[in-house]
Design a binder for these strands. Structure first.
Lengths: 122, 122, 122, 122
DNA sequence: GTGGTCTAGACCACC
DNA sequence: GTGGTCTAGACCACC
């Protein structure tokens, strides 16, 4: 995994885990690798990994069992909510970018529909 | 203007100018500040500004008159094409991101329409 | 390689490479000498070589692999297009010159055909 | 008139006069401006102009009347020959260039005919 | 090693 | 003054 210097590493780790969970790459209830193992894999400090995971536990995306490990939540509604939160963020960013180009709401819809149509025809 | 270390400065300058031209902030035919002035304003080297501008001249988004200055193209069709190129790129990125979250084409459309509807109600 | 002061060196380097590629002297996919080596060979600065090559990469006549080298495109259609672009330019220049001598279109055709015929008989 | 540093100035003056004569800009029998006037107009040394003119007198393209001035030849056959010499040179150069691009004789003919046809349709 | 970017500074061309 | 080109040299990214 490559890190972008501009964003805190713990934040990028969270994002990576978010994506793997939403994509089903890490299934509900699945045990994550040990914190120390993750730290080695990502070549970052254990504390950095710990911070990422503890925040995700607070968000109830992960559950932590002392002395056992960290697990993906089994509450699929929460995963769905996470998925919506992430996609909403991406969509919002697109809107900001297109508005900066002075596209009206109508033009934005048209542009996106044109893209979808072109893609479907492929 | 702040620069992100991850992408070349000349590239960010180009992008900034693209946006200002598409947004109409820099009108067709308008003269840009002198390269040396831009360099001072952006606190970068003249050569870096030159690289950005000369590429835009090659793309025919700008025209250059030696000993006079650089000007935004008066060919509005070219500006429209630029606008489409930029927005297409942003939309494409959104698609990549949402596909990474395992949203199907249908779900992507639904999510965007939901966002649009929510925005309109505001 | 000798350089003519009237046209930019990077431009002459491009032109020389164009000819070598179109003539097949540099084959599709072939690796070019390292930029620093080219700079030594041509006794110009590395940046001047870089400028020539980077423009050709933009034109997709060359491809660049960071840390590896620059390569002639394997897209032969692009080389064919380059060949046509160059020859069209040369032909256009001839027309301009002959028109300046007040040769009509008809006289130009006649003159060229006469030259061709004379050459064939050689 | 602009001079190219790579070619002797007297040679460029000759060429300029050749073109004006062939184009009929300087008619058969027409008196040329005084040598000193030409030198001023072209901002070159009188000797440079003198050399150009004396060579053209030797070539019998000009005639010189001592104490009167220099005149374009009234021998139109000679002007026609000059026209052919110049156009032949330009055509020859084109052939050299296109052969360097590895165009066969047939391809050269085809390319030129395509250009002529495209031009006629304009 | 190989390409890519940037700075500093010089000099030229056109006005 | 304004843009265009070139050099020298440094440093970074990818291998």
């Amino acid at each position: 995994m490559q890190f972008d210097d501009k964003v805190p590493i713990y934040y990028q780790i969270k994002n990576n885990l978010y994506h793997r969970i939403v994509a089903g790459d890490l299934a509900p209830g699945e045990k994550l690798p040990a914190v120390r193992q993750l730290a080695v894999d990502l070549t970052v400090n254990v504390n950095t990994v710990q911070r990422a995971l503890s925040e995700m536990v607070t968000e109830q995306v992960l559950t932590s069992k002392r002395g056992v490990g960290n697990f993906v939540t089994t509450d699929t509604a929460r995963i769905t909510a996470l998925k919506q939160r992430l996609s909403h963020g991406y969509i919002e960013r697109l809107y900001t970018q297109l508005h900066a180009l002075r596209l009206s709401d109508g033009e934005i819809v048209t542009a996106i529909q044109a893209y979808i149509t072109a893609n479907k025809e492929e």
